[in-house]
Every structure is written in C-alpha cells, then in structure tokens.
C-alpha cells in the first residue's frame, strides 16, 4: 500500500479527530489543504491561532466571546431583568436566530443526567443563582429540551427559584406547521393539558 508522507499522515490523523469526520473525509480534507497550501492552509493556521489566543467563555453567561464579557451581555439595548436558560451555546444561537428574545442568556453547559454522572454540582448552578440576585432578574425563561434530562433539570431549577423570581418555560406541544394526526399521543396529550386561550395566538401577529 502506498504510504503517505509523514506530514500528510499527521494532518490526516488530526483532522480525523474532528466530530463527523471519518478516515476517508480526513484524507480528502488533508489533500485539499496540501494542494492549496498557499492560501487556505495559511488562513486556517492564522484563524486557529487567533481563536486559541482570544476565544474564551463570557464570564457572565458562558457564551463564546473574544472579550471577558460577550457581545450580548455587553449590549446596553438588551432588556435587563429577563434571563433565558439554555443547555448549550448551540441552543443559544438557535434562539438568537429567532429574533424573539431580547433579554440575556445563561448557558448551563449540560443537563442533570445521573447516567453520565452529571449532578447539580457539576453544572455550577450557584453561579446562576448568584447572577439572578446580583443582576436583579425578574423572570427566568427555561428553553430546555423536552427530554427526561431536560425535564429533571427544569424541575430542579424551578424548585430552587420558586418564590424568588418568575419562572417560565418555552411552550411544548404540536409543532408549527405540524398536522395533528402525525403527532404522537404523548405530545398531543401534553399539548391538550397545556392548552392556550386562542386569542394569545393571534395577538402576537
């Protein structure tokens, strides 16, 4: 078998460590970079360097940031007093893309999951509780997946925040554009339980 030069082999091995990249894709990417060594590779080296040097997590909300405080937390136009709790930065981006939320975020970095050995202490909830007091938060919106882990985390948080601050959760039920007969009974059952006055739907438009 034709063996690769050591430098290319190393690059392939590193690329292969990335999520979603297998052996063959890694080799394809490595060869692409090798063929265009003048521009793409140089750009990549530079951006990797600056990412390593600058990128940290925001000290307030744990979003990615180049400064100690991220753009959202630093933005004076955002509402004070509402805090949206999300599991991951990926979820933060998803909510930010809706343009429907103008408050600030808090990224948990995980959910309570005994199977993975993650309990309340691993998630540093004390930071969150301290933040709610110091920033005088009035409402906490929990935008957390409707899984057993998400549910457990919401239960834990709400029982600690109960009485101190208004706690709400994003709505659950039939998805927008979804047809009823395609929804499973479990989802539909919960949707009926947490039904809404109809005028709420139309006032938003």
């Amino acid at each position: 078998m034709n063996r690769l030069p050591k430098s290319l082999e190393q690059l392939t091995a590193v690329l292969g460590k990335l999520p979603g990249i297998g052996k063959k894709s890694a080799l394809r990417l490595a060869m692409y970079l090798a063929d265009r060594s003048d521009d793409v590779a140089a750009e990549m080296i530079q951006s990797l360097e600056s990412m390593r040097q600058q990128l940290t997590l925001c000290k307030h909300c744990r979003n990615y940031s180049d400064q100690p405080v991220c753009d959202i937390c630093a933005d004076k136009r955002r509402e004070n007093g509402t805090l949206c709790i999300v599991e991951s930065i990926k979820d933060l981006i998803a909510i930010e893309d809706t343009g429907q939320f103008m408050g600030r975020y808090h990224v948990l970095g995980g959910l309570i999951s005994p199977i993975d050995g993650i309990g309340p202490e691993e998630l540093n909830f004390s930071d969150l509780f301290a933040r709610i007091e110091s920033e005088n938060i009035q409402e906490v919106i929990m935008a957390i997946s409707a899984t057993i882990e998400g549910d457990t985390t919401m239960y834990y948080l709400s029982s600690h925040l109960d009485g101190k601050v208004r706690v709400s959760s994003i709505a659950r039920g039939v998805s927008f554009g979804g047809e009823l007969d395609y929804a499973d009974e479990f989802t539909l059952g919960r949707a009926i339980q947490s039904r809404q006055p109809v005028d709420k739907f139309f006032n938003g438009q």
Binding site: I112, P114, I115, G117, G119, E121, I148, Y156
Partner: peptide, 29 residues
C-alpha cells in the same frame, strides 16, 4: 426513567437534599 433513578441512587457524592429533590422528580415521572 428507572434506569436514571438507579444511577442517581448509586451516586454517593451528591448532596443529600439534591438527591431527595431529584428522586422526587423521577418518582413523579
């Protein structure tokens, strides 16, 4: 859910009141 409850019960390092709270949730489920 039982699988999660069993794992929770096996975690000895967790604070007692946290454990009680989470057990309540799992038992409700």
């Amino acid at each position: 859910v039982l699988k999660r409850k069993r794992e929770l019960l096996k975690q000895f390092s967790m604070r007692y009141e946290d454990k009680i709270l989470l057990l309540k949730k799992y038992d409700f489920e």
